[in-house]
């Protein structure tokens, strides 16, 4: 929460350094709050930060693990790929973005992966296409024991659809709208395997083959109009210009 009038939004911790007392969080500027966060300068502060919340991603020795990151989700996939590597898995990472200028942390992800594949929608870097294409090829050519897919809902949905015929357990990190994030309000409810779950305390990780993706997508669109209004209102106030 940026200030007293701000909203509470869920963000994923990408890294932390207990000695330095620092947290690394990477976010994409999409709406009012994330753009406002993007305007902060070194030394600025925000009113409130709560966490970590939810259940940490489970890492153990599975064998071969494919980590798929869509867009800025390279950040949250990093600590997972690292933990999977430390647990003696063979880690194959796939990172995809719309274009080359949206790529980051390539070297970091490579350093914890046995193999790294890059895709861009426009072909400006790596291979042209979607992350699901190399994912399918890997599944066809070698035995994969687990897939972790993080990114936009539609990307996680199609990764899950890609792995389903191969019967490979696929963990996705769901990102429904949240308010308190501590297991109180029920805003973040998702349906997994026919049961209502609360992403903030039961998740955010769920079995991608069991998720009701259409419901998630509908609930994520709940406030599109208000989000637009908030952004326009804010841009008016700050003169419509920011970096």
């Amino acid at each position: 929460m940026i200030d007293e009038k701000g909203e509470r939004i869920p963000l994923t911790v990408a890294d932390c350094d207990a000695k330095e007392g620092t947290l690394t969080i990477v976010f994409m500027e999409v709406g009012k709050t994330t753009r406002e966060l993007g305007c902060l300068k070194t030394g600025d502060s925000i009113m409130s930060l709560t966490g970590p919340l939810g259940v940490p991603t489970h890492a153990e020795k599975f064998g071969t693990v494919v980590c798929v990151a869509g867009g800025f989700a390279v950040a949250p996939i990093m600590p997972i790929a690292r933990a999977m590597k430390q647990a003696s898995n063979k880690v194959i990472s796939i990172m995809g973005a719309r274009s080359k200028d949206l790529m980051f942390w390539e070297d970091e992800l490579r350093s914890v992966s046995d193999k790294l594949i890059i895709t861009t929608d426009d072909g400006s870097y790596g291979r042209k296409g979607l992350v699901t294409e190399p994912l399918k090829e890997i599944l066809e050519t070698e035995k994969v024991d687990r897939v972790i897919a993080i990114g936009p809902s539609v990307m996680m949905k199609f990764c899950s659809k890609t792995t389903q015929p191969f019967g490979v357990k696929t963990i996705v990190s769901l990102n429904p709208i949240m308010v308190d994030g501590t297991g109180m309000c029920g805003c973040c409810r998702v349906v997994v395997g026919g049961q209502t779950k609360f992403a903030c305390v039961d998740g955010p990780d769920f079995d991608g083959h069991q998720v009701d993706w259409d419901l998630l997508a509908a609930r994520q669109r709940n406030y599109l109009e208000e989000e637009k209004k908030a952004l326009e209102n804010w841009q008016c106030q700050c003169g419509g210009h920011h970096h």
Partner: peptide, 21 residues
């Protein structure tokens, strides 16, 4: 809980002056 949290804690009745709708 969500309804009242949005309204009371996050002051959604003052949106867009407050950010939570």
């Amino acid at each position: 809980n969500e309804w009242l949290t949005r309204i009371n804690l996050m002051k959604a009745y003052l949106f867009p002056n407050y950010d939570t709708p």
